Amino acid sequence: MTAALITVSSLLVATPAQAAGSFSLNNGHFFVAPSVVYPGLIAPVSVGLGNNSNASAATVTITFGILCNSPGRPGAESSAQTIVIPPDPSRPAGGSQLTRVATTVAVPTACTKPTGPIPLSQDGYFWVKMTQTGMPDQLKMVPIWVGKPFTAANFRENLATLTKQNNPDYQAHHQLPQMYRATFEQAGLVIDDPRYGLWWCSKAGVPTNHSSQAANYNAKWEQFFATTASPSQDEILTYMKSLVGLYVYTC
C-alpha cells in the first residue's frame, strides 16, 4: 500500500457488495476524519453505512486507525465495534445512510511531517477496516496533513496546511465565529479546526472584504441562536454551510 498514491476521490466511495444483507459505502456514505492533525490530538472519526438488502440486516465489525508517514511510521487504532445495519426499505437498496459509527483515534506523539528527499503528497492517513462474515474485508483511507494544535493563534497556519494557500491579502475566516466559541464547544465543535475555515479577502477598499462583512456575518449567527435553542452539531454545521453562498470571498 503506497500512501503517496492515495486520492480522496478513489478512497471515499466503494463499490457496493451484491450479497443480501451486505453493507455498502456507496452514494454518499463517507468516512469522516480530520484533514489536519497534530501530535496528541484525540481525533473524532466516523463512517456512514448503508445496506444492500431490502430484507436482511448486515452485521459488520469496524475498526478505525491512523498511520503517519513520519520516521518509524507511527500508528494507532481504536477498539473494534460490531454493529447491525437494518435493511434498507428503499429501492434499490443501498442508497441510504442507515447507520453512522463514531469513535476517536489518538494521533501518536511521534506523528510529524515526513522528512526525506522525496516529497509526499500527504503526511499519512486515517483508515477504517470493515469486516463481514463471508465477505472480503474493506479498507478505506482518507489523507492527513500534520499541523499545529487547534488554537486561534495557529488557525491561519493550519488553514494554509489544509488548503496549500496563504495569500497575505486574505483573512483566515472562522466560519464558526469566535464570539460564540463557548456555545460551539458545548455542541462538541472545535472552531479552530481548519475544516471550519476559509479564505476571505481582507484587501482595503474591496466592498465585500472580511472587515466590511464580519458584523453582518455574525448577526446571522445571532439570529440562528435566537431561533434555535441548544442546536445540535449537525444543525450548526448545516447552517454554517448554508451561509457560504451569501458572500463574496475573493478580492
Rank of each mutant, 00 (worst) to 15 (best):
L5G: 13
I6G: 08
I6H: 08
T7N: 10
V8M: 13
S10N: 14
V13N: 04
A14F: 09
A14E: 09
P16R: 01
Q18P: 01
A19F: 06
G21A: 04
S22V: 05
S22L: 00
F23Y: 04
F23I: 08
L25I: 14
G28W: 13
G28C: 15
S35I: 08
S35R: 03
S35M: 11
V37G: 05
Y38H: 03
Y38F: 10
G40W: 00
P44M: 10
V45Y: 12
V45M: 06
V47E: 04
V47H: 01
L49M: 10
A57R: 11
A58M: 02
I62T: 03
T63G: 05
F64W: 01
G65L: 03
G65N: 10
P71G: 06
P71Q: 09
G72C: 09
A76Q: 07
A76D: 08
Q81G: 01
T82M: 06
T82F: 04
V84M: 07
I85Y: 00
P86I: 12
P86V: 11
P86D: 11
D88Y: 01
S90M: 14
R91C: 15
P92Q: 11
A93Y: 02
S96Y: 12
Q97E: 15
Q97P: 08
L98I: 09
L98K: 03
R100C: 12
A102Y: 13
T104L: 07
T104S: 13
T109I: 00
T109C: 00
T112S: 05
K113P: 03
K113H: 07
P117F: 08
P117N: 15
I118G: 05
I118E: 07
G124N: 02
F126Q: 05
V128Y: 00
K129R: 13
K129A: 08
M130P: 01
T131D: 07
T131R: 11
Q132Y: 07
G134C: 02
M135E: 07
L139A: 09
P143V: 14
I144M: 08
W145R: 09
W145P: 00
P149D: 01
E157K: 03
A160D: 00
T161M: 07
T163E: 02
Q165I: 13
N167F: 05
N167Q: 11
P168W: 06
P168A: 11
D169F: 15
Y170R: 09
Q171H: 15
H174R: 04
H174D: 08
Q175L: 12
P177L: 04
Q178E: 11
R181Y: 13
A182R: 12
E185H: 09
A187M: 05
A187W: 10
G188R: 09
L189V: 08
V190F: 10
P194W: 01
P194D: 03
R195V: 03
R195K: 14
W199I: 06
W200E: 06
C201A: 09
C201F: 08
C201I: 03
A204L: 15
A204S: 15
G205M: 15
H210E: 14
Q213Y: 10
A214D: 15
A215N: 14
A215Q: 12
A215T: 15
N216M: 14
N216H: 14
W221F: 06
E222G: 09
Q223S: 15
F224N: 05
F225A: 03
A226V: 06
T227D: 03
S230Y: 05
P231D: 05
S232H: 04
E235I: 11
S242W: 10
L243W: 09
L246H: 13
Y247L: 12
T250I: 12
C251P: 15
C251E: 11
C251Y: 10
